[in-house]
């Protein structure tokens, strides 16, 4: 059974077709990069997989389940928008996650907090954008989930912090899980992803393992991306 199985998925916002008859099958044990220009349907697709958008047509199965309460239990989702109360301190947020998510690993969260050099008593409102994103990444990665979905996890952080975040993502990733990372910063994630999906106008343009694509096209993934979308 595929971890994610999508058949003929369509998603529309009024007249705008965000996802157009997309079919996809993804198995566990890999990190998948989801890339594409703005408006290509990346966030829409991730929201549907995360069961945060149920207004679509087509078939979507997450570990054999239709997106909903049960599928949400095995998906750890990082939205591209801030989504936690900013009047809470980092330690309070960790406690909150520990209360609500049975698969949350509190020790791992505190370890990552140290790794990111964040103060546990600091409120989110007092943190910079990058620091806030680090908190959200550590919360997402501290769950022992089967599927990790990260929508633009490194977009607002400096290059040095990006490396730390990416390293922590790999360290926090278990071999039997599936991780989907959507980003514009392909250069940064090229070395950590096992396969890549190029999305354009709600359809898959290219999909494959990074090694195969490099060999097939004789260039790096970032160069290939630039060539296709220029």
């Amino acid at each position: 059974m595929s971890t994610i199985l999508i058949n003929n998925l369509c998603k529309r916002y009024g007249k705008f077709q965000a996802i157009n008859n997309l079919s996809l099958e993804l198995d566990s044990g890999q990190i998948v990069g989801l890339v594409g220009p703005n408006g290509s349907g990346k966030s829409s697709l991730l929201r549907i997989i995360g069961a945060f958008d149920m207004a679509y047509s087509g078939e979507v199965l997450i570990n054999g389940l239709k997106p909903g309460l049960e599928s949400r239990k095995i998906v750890s989702y990082l939205s591209d928008k801030p989504y936690i109360s900013d009047n809470l301190r980092a330690e309070q947020i960790i406690k909150l996650y520990d209360d609500f998510f049975p698969d949350f690993n509190k020790d791992k969260a505190f370890r990552m907090l140290d790794l990111f050099k964040l103060k546990s008593e600091q409120k989110l409102v007092e943190m910079s954008k990058g620091m806030g994103e680090k908190v959200q990444v550590l919360l997402t990665m501290s769950r022992e989930a089967k599927i990790y979905i990260l929508d633009e996890p490194i977009s607002g952080v400096d290059p040095a912090s990006r490396k730390i975040i990416l390293r922590s993502m790999i360290e926090g990733f278990s071999e039997d899980a599936l991780m989907i990372v959507s980003t514009h910063l392909l250069n940064d994630i090229e070395n950590i992803i096992d396969s890549v999906i190029f999305l354009d106008s709600g359809q898959i343009k290219i999909k494959g393992s990074t090694d195969d694509l490099r060999e097939q096209h004789g260039k790096g993934i970032n160069e290939l991306f630039e060539q296709i979308f220029q």
Partner: peptide
């Protein structure tokens, strides 16, 4: 709104 991605991801029955 802005906290919905957290609130909606909580594995709680409706």
């Amino acid at each position: 709104g802005k906290r919905s991605y957290f609130f909606r991801s909580i594995p709680a029955k409706e």
